[in-house]
Amino acid sequence: MQNKKTLFLLGLRDVIPLLIAAAPFGIVFGALAQANGLSVLATMGMSAFVFAGSSQFVAVTLIGVGAALPIIIVTVLIVNLRHMLYSISLMPRVGGLSLGLRTIMSFWLTDEAYATSSMKLQENPKMVNFHWHYLGAAVGMYINWQTCTGLGILLGQQIPDLTKWGLDIAMVVAFVGIVVPMLKNRAQWACATAAFFCALVTHDWPHQTGLLFSSLLAITVGVLLSKKTYLSTAPSGDADE
């Protein structure tokens, strides 16, 4: 069993490639928020208190087109619902932890921290003190996001065209680097293939609901295809119920 500090630092180290990939996003957010009329303080405040990348993007885009407040809030809710899937998937890992710890773990839940730690869990499913690894990755993400938002506010005033560069490619290739090594059997490949094509077909569904639908469909495909191996291991007494 590794100690807490080692795991925390390991999480911080493991998330570094994703910090680099997320940096352009934070910078573009800072610049875009300014361009769409959010004050400097509120831009920083949104990153500090909301801390949900895609939701923040959607919000400042909607501010830019003059959407009403309730519309923005509801859209943000829907866009961020995929994080609920992450939270559900972490349920078996957080039982027994204090409510305070779970609160901060939820607040810091992002695609990047989740991806980093679930990659670690795939390597070592029986890992103890998982949450320290996760917290290391999450703290790295939080500091990175605040720094990049600030940088974006500054850069956006210098380079008005910044928001038009195709900077989200960094996120695409980082996620490829996470997902592909996770694909080890037929069910996992089928799940990824289903998610990929379904997300393309449903891209024009409102408020990124296509993303959520595609994820659920792909998960179902994965479970159905792995059912046989799953049933054959169940009688070994490994199952919960």
Binding site: R82, L85, Y86, I88, S89, D111, Y114, A115, S118, M119, M171, V172, F175, V176, I178, V179, M182, L183, A187, Q188, C191, A192, A194, A195, F196, C198, A199, G210, L211, S214, S215, L216, A218, I219, G222, V223
Partner: peptide, 11 residues
């Protein structure tokens, strides 16, 4: 399957 499904859909 959650990480594979969600991240691939985003990609």
């Amino acid at each position: 399957f959650v990480p594979i499904a969600v991240l691939t859909a985003i990609i």
